[in-house]
Write a protein that binds this DNA or RNA. Structure first.
Length: 586
RNA sequence: GUCUCUGUAGCUCAGAAGGAUAGAGCACUGGAUUCCUAAUCCAGGGGUCGCAGGUUCGAAUCCUGCCAGAGACACCA
């Protein structure tokens, strides 16, 4: 149930009746009419723009039409008051009983309050993280992981059947370099003096334990077999080892995937899906041999014109065509990715989303092009970008460099500040804007730090329910009992503000899902927590406003219903964000 | 040079997909704790929504141009 959509029904019913009775032309188009929550004071609780939209279509003044509609709306028991204001806004105040019903509904729906059928059970494929398995996760991966995971939570909450996938880049040159590096570490673990890790390989210390693990498994045997065979073993082992670490790293951030899809598998088991995708594009007449133009704005010391196999992505809005084969005949990364996306399409999802880091912005149009080409433009495919995170400590930028192997490991960060603050903080910004992340500030337990503020509201609600149990040992604080309370007793202004805030949740969820913006949930929870803290604090000055009234069990039960509903909605929102909802703060 | 994103209070950012008098937090000033946890709350000042046009009943929001900042732009993955 959603109050504003109920009002929308009321308004459109009134207008339809006016059309039927001849007050309005029968062919009048109702497009553009909206119900929104009022913002300022003395503007009712909701407003409609109906009169202003319709007036110009039938050549009358908005205020006259507004009064006309208002008079008919007033007759509805659902609505307590209707006013016409400004250029022709219809301001609507709904009946108290509507708000009471809402609280009862929340308590009845429990964890399902705010769910919707928006997704209609459609199968949705979401790819996120997909970091190269050449090292442990670091903070750069963190945002995409949290955003992708939360988006999946959100979209399954509104009724999509979500499949969460990690594309494992376990083929290609970087894996070769990883293998070379780990082989050196292996020799090191056997006691060789290896000196510096050569330029171009992976210099970080994390490869040492992989070398040691290989010694534990093979002793010195790999040293004596053919180098190519040894490297092949080492590569596979290293990828498996690092994937396991990545898996663990993600788990401690509460991030999960259903499928880890191997890039290498595209050309295994007697099939070459890369060749297949190129053949398919060939049949569509989208492949040719040619040379790419020299890019502008770059000073290349060496520029060679090379003929290679190109895909006509420029037919689909890309700037230039893109290479599928290198001049030496190998597949490009993009060719593998094209095959991967064909594979996705063959698995027949209804919609696709890819969450990519900001460094892949230039990649979007080519992958969208190939999706359009392969599906004949008949697919819903969104690419969402997570922008850079600047890691700070006490206002100072933490320098990171891939080359020297210095970066903040995800695991270390979780150990230092905890999963909840990281997730919440990452979601306090829109995904496509850059974000400063201060390791020092994020552990501060202050209002500066919204995660504690929201969690505290949940803990406070829990605490009040516990306390009520002490004062009134006989009453039940279970949601299933509280909705029978006499909710009409919730009539002071702070309680109304809080109730209205609770009413917004389904709408916030739906718009967050529709626009793929989970940060809206985080902001909403902050506001809800604020309304709750405020109401609690009013009890400091005015004891009659406290939730627990020792001499009035009936009133107490009504107020506990509001507390329980608040607790429920906060818990529900935090669940979507993948953040815990503590029953007490220590 | 091309493309993408960003520009809102001193700082960090929201702004519900065109609505009425643009909102939070931080910081600053002043106040509240024998109390359902003060990790909280109350009050106050602070704005040319980058600039200029346009679209319409109405623009921070949509369109065009300009200014400023960030990022991406061969066979890497």
């Amino acid at each position: 149930m959603n109050i504003s959509s109920q009002i929308a029904d009321k308004v459109s019913t009134v207008i339809e009746r006016m059309k039927a009775s001849g007050d309005l032309p029968a062919e009048l188009d109702l497009k553009g009419i909206e119900i929104q929550e009022s913002r300022g004071v003395n503007r009712g609780e909701f407003f409609s723009n109906a009169a202003m939209i319709l007036a110009k279509r039938i050549n009358t003044t908005p205020r006259d039409l507004a009064h006309n509609i208002a008079n008919k709306l007033t007759l509805d028991k659902f609505i307590a008051q209707v006013d016409v204001a400004g250029p022709g806004f219809i301001n609507i105040t709904v009946a108290d009983s509507v708000w009471c019903d809402l609280i009862a509904t929340i308590l009845k729906d429990s964890k399902n309050y705010g769910r919707s059928r928006m997704g209609e059970g459609k199968r949705l494929h979401v790819e996120y993280v997909s970091a190269n398995p050449t090292g442990p996760m670091h903070v750069g991966h963190c945002r995409g992981a949290v955003f992708g995971d939360t988006l999946c939570n959100l979209l399954s909450f509104v009724g999509y059947a979500v499949s969460r996938e990690y594309y494992v880049n376990d083929a290609g040159a970087q894996i070769g370099k990883l293998g070379d590096t780990v082989f050196i570490r292996y020799l090191e673990a056997l006691g060789d003096n290896i000196g510096e890790i050569p330029e171009g390989l992976y210099p970080g210390d994390y490869t040492k334990s992989i070398g040691q693990a290989l010694v534990g498994l093979y002793g010195d045997r790999l040293r004596h077999v053919d180098k190519a065979d040894a490297l092949s073993i080492v590569r596979q082992f290293a990828v498996k080892f690092l994937l396991e670490e990545i898996h663990n790293d993600l788990a401690c951030l509460n991030v999960h995937h259903d499928v880890f899809f191997s890039e290498r598998s595209l050309t295994e088991n007697g099939r070459d899906q890369v060749a297949e995708v190129i053949e398919k594009l060939h049949q569509l007449d989208l492949i040719y041999q040619g040379e790419l133009p020299r890019p502008l704005g770059h000073d290349y010391e060496v520029w060679e014109e090379r003929e290679q196999t190109l895909f006509r992505s420029s037919h689909f809005g890309d700037d230039i065509d893109r290479a599928l084969m290198k001049s030496n005949g190998e597949y490009t990364y993009f060719a593998y990715d094209a095959a991967y996306h064909l594979n996705k399409l063959e698995r027949n999802f209804d919609q696709y989303i890819s969450v990519l880091g900001a460094d892949h912005i230039g990649y979007i149009s080519r992958i969208k092009s190939v999706m359009s080409a392969l599906s004949e433009a008949n697919v819903m495919f969104n690419v969402l970008i997570t922008q850079l995170v600047r890691v700070m400590r006490n206002g100072e930028l933490v320098r990171m460099s891939k080359r020297s192997g210095t970066f903040v490991a995800l695991r270390d960060m979780v150990d230092e500040v905890g999963c909840d603050p990281i997730r919440f903080m990452m979601l306090m910004r829109k995904h496509d804007t850059t974000l400063d992340f201060d390791l020092k500030k994020i552990v501060e337990r202050s209002k500066d730090n919204p995660v504690f503020y929201v969690q505290y509201a949940h803990a406070r609600a829990s605490s009040i329910l516990r306390r009520a149990k002490v004062v009134f040992p006989l009453i039940s604080t279970c949601c299933c009992d509280l909705y029978d309370a006499n909710l009409l007793l919730l009539n002071n202004s702070g309680e109304r503000v809080l109730t209205r805030e609770l009413a917004k949740f389904p709408r916030v969820v739906e718009s967050a899902a529709r626009y793929h913006e989970p940060h809206r949930i985080a902001f909403y929870l902050y506001e809800l927590a604020s309304a709750f803290h405020q109401q609690h604090a009013r009890g400091n000055d005015l004891p009659e406003l406290r939730f627990i009234q020792p001499d009035n069990p009936t009133l107490t039960v009504a107020r506990l219903a509001l507390v329980a509903a608040t607790q429920l909605v906060i818990a529900c929102g935090l669940k979507i964000l993948g953040v815990s909802a503590p029953v007490e703060m220590q």
